[in-house]
Design a protein around this nucleic acid. Sequence first.
RNA 1: GGUCCCGUAGCUCAACUGGAUAGAGCGGCGGACUUCUAAUCCGCAGGUUGCAGGUUCGAGUCCUGCCGGGAUCGCCA
Length: 586
Amino acid sequence: MNLYAYFSDRIFAALDTLKADGVLPGDLVVRGVTAEPPRDPAHGDIATNAAMVLAKQAKMPPRELAEALAAVLAKDEDVVGVDIAGPGFINIRMSPAFWPRILTSVLELRGNYGSSEIGAGEAVNVEYVSANPTGPLHVGHVRGAVFGDALAALLDYSGFKVTTEYYVNDAGAQVDALARSAYMRYREALGQEIGDIPEGYYPGDYLKPVGELLAEKHGESLLGADETEWLPVIRAEAIDAMLALIKDDLASLGIQQDLFFSERSLIEGVTDKVAGTIDELRERGLIYEGRLPPPKGKTPEDWEDREQTLFRATEFGDDVDRALMKSDGSYTYFASDIAYHNDKYKRGFRNMIDVWGADHGGYVKRMQAAVKAVTAGEGALDVKICQLVRLFRGGEPVKMSKRAGDFVTLREVVDEVGPDPVRFMMLYRKNDAPLDFDFVKVTEQSRDNPVFYVQYAHARAYSVFRNTLEVFPDLKPESLNPVKLKLSLLESEEELELLRRIAQFPRVIEASSVAHEPHRIAFYLYELAGDFHSLWNRGKELPQLRFINAANRDLTEARIALVSSTAEVLASGLRILGVQPVREMR
RNA sequence: GGUCCCGUAGCUCAACUGGAUAGAGCGGCGGACUUCUAAUCCGCAGGUUGCAGGUUCGAGUCCUGCCGGGAUCGCCA
């Protein structure tokens, strides 16, 4: 149950009462009213801005309206105090008997507590990674991979029907370069001297096994052949090998996407979907032949003023119209991408999310313009940009030079520190802020390392469960009967603070989900872990606050219910982030 | 030059899409271990939210203009 959503219903009801009593005009439109936890707990449990937001419509001073509303809300049996503060905030204090219902709810729902129906089963498509299939994933891909995967899990938890997708760029010049590189390795495998790998080719050793495989499969049959003959064959097989590599890399982070969508299939399928999409747009007058002005500020050396096929992107908010055909007559990447998003829409996705790297920021407007055009305004595309990750080792930057080919691969990072720290740290920052990743810090066992801190809280909860059995051998968290617990025994300030934090989880899920910001869950878990560690330590100073009290079974049960609820929420949150909730620190 | 993102404590970052006295961690200082694992906790110090205007009951958040950092700029993907 989302306490705040639940309570805003009561506020709406109170407003209706005021309308019926003639205090408020009957045609008043309730909008912008929120029910949220106040920043300062001293202000109570729930705060609403209703009086301030509605004052103008009600033609009443906010404080006066607040008085009237407060009087109605005070009659609620779960409310023990209502006061008005500042410009017209209404602060509501819930009865102590109310809070335990949150725990009852957690214990009944367990791993589903906090899940939401705001998605209402609507289909949403999340596309992420989509790296060129020309080699293993490197560290630059990690963030988008983890982000997309966590966002998908979050949306799933919020009631959306999620499909995850990887767009395979298997149609451009880069996969031709891959094919040529693989062909060299093929010749090498057959004993030929190949010398240096030329500029613009892929020099990595990872193509050697591909060459050997090709040699094994084709023998010498492709050696004398013309490039036009061997290229499509080698290209297809090299791409397959690269995708196998990439899927393996993703699997090491626990990522498995639903669909790998081939760019080439758009053109080489039964119908040319790119041409089809362009035709659709042309019929609606959105395509024309024309010239583009050169970019302002600096004109490229090889600028050639020529007429080309353009999409009227400016009609949908873009800065310039965009080219769809290259000078050699093939489609631009953008043209295929429009067709791809059109295809997503036709497959039933009104909601699309693309996760891109920072270097594609300049591409957002045109893609959103294209989606607007191709879906006639029905589809929505949100593009999440992931900023760069900087690697450090013990505070020292890790040097990488892309030219020399010695970039750090995704696999190297995962192999060194494990998937959990990688995933958590990639989500412990807003996606559009740059992120520092330190190989040493992320495996440290200290508060400085949030991964550990949260994991430790979960493990500590399980340590309590183990210790409980020594005093009450049959007292297990999973055998507690939620309705029989004496939860009113939980009354210390620290316990209630933890309880209030647990009560906020559903709200955090919904807010993260609406904003497409999974990092909020990571921050929430860090705070929840902090509350739990804090309560734990209070038990050292005040033994009567310890979770296990041999002389009082009812109290112990109530506290185990609290600890168990904490563990459930930690586990649910971690599951969305894709991090294992461990039960023991080794 | 155009466009997009970012400027918040000494450092790294939050701030629930416009709410009350802007919060955490690190670092600094001072405390708590015969432990339900101190792998943790408690307290103190630290701010003109880059600058200047505007919008309104109310702005770190929205609008405009500057300053500073990053990304990108017909046919690459």
